[in-house]
Computed example of a mutant assay.
Amino acid sequence: MKRIGFYPGSFDPVTLGHTDVIARACRLVDRLVIGVGTHDAKQPMFTVAERVAMLESETAPIAKKTGTAIDIVTFGGLAVDAARETGASVIVRGLRDATDFDYEVGMAGMNGAMAPGIETVFLAATPSVAHIAANLVRQIAQMGGDVSPFVSPAIAARLKTKARN
């Protein structure tokens, strides 16, 4: 039986923290489905199509290196429902700090009650990327700052272009 993981997020933009979690999750599953959330309440910097395109380009080398199939989907409802629809048995969540842990443990409990067959796996952030938060990366870009320590060169270029518009 193939192990399928589901990694949900907004990925606005894709950061080095995200790609760290993706690469590490690929060691645990045979197929990783990355779910791009499309919630109306959020005001993303990038469109859904742009976020999917960024993920496709950023994850292709990871898929090749690890031999893991990586698929990218969009979802607008509950992450646990999207995970179920993709056949995932695991939801992958990255943890940067204790605040993330407190929130994610509650979410895992709720998801477990709704879908007992889907486990949540927490991956502690690699120390070199633990401080990276996409919302802060967006703020830095919008204020003309250097985002290169937090994202790949391709994403930095996209942020620079987007921030000018």
Rank of each mutant, 00 (worst) to 15 (best):
A156M: 14
V33C: 05
A125L: 13
Q139V: 03
D100A: 10
M107Q: 10
M110T: 03
K42M: 03
P61H: 14
H131N: 11
M1S: 09
A79R: 00
S57Y: 02
L95C: 14
A82Y: 01
V90N: 08
V129W: 02
R27I: 02
V21T: 10
I155K: 01
I118E: 09
A23P: 07
F150T: 00
K162Q: 07
A23V: 11
R31H: 15
D97R: 15
S152I: 11
G17N: 03
A115C: 13
I118Y: 07
T59L: 01
T161C: 02
M45F: 13
M54V: 12
V14M: 12
G145K: 04
I155L: 06
A23G: 14
T68R: 11
G109C: 04
V36M: 03
D100E: 11
I34F: 02
A108V: 05
V36R: 02
A79K: 00
G87C: 05
E58S: 01
G145W: 01
H39M: 09
P149T: 04
I4N: 00
K42I: 01
P44R: 02
G67E: 04
P61C: 12
P61F: 12
M45W: 07
R31Q: 14
G94Y: 07
G5H: 12
G67M: 05
S148G: 13
R93Y: 06
G37L: 06
K42V: 07
T19D: 09
E85P: 01
E58V: 00
D97V: 13
A134P: 03
T120L: 11
V36H: 04
V147S: 10
P116V: 12
L95P: 11
H131W: 12
S128P: 12
G144H: 06
P13Q: 13
I4D: 01
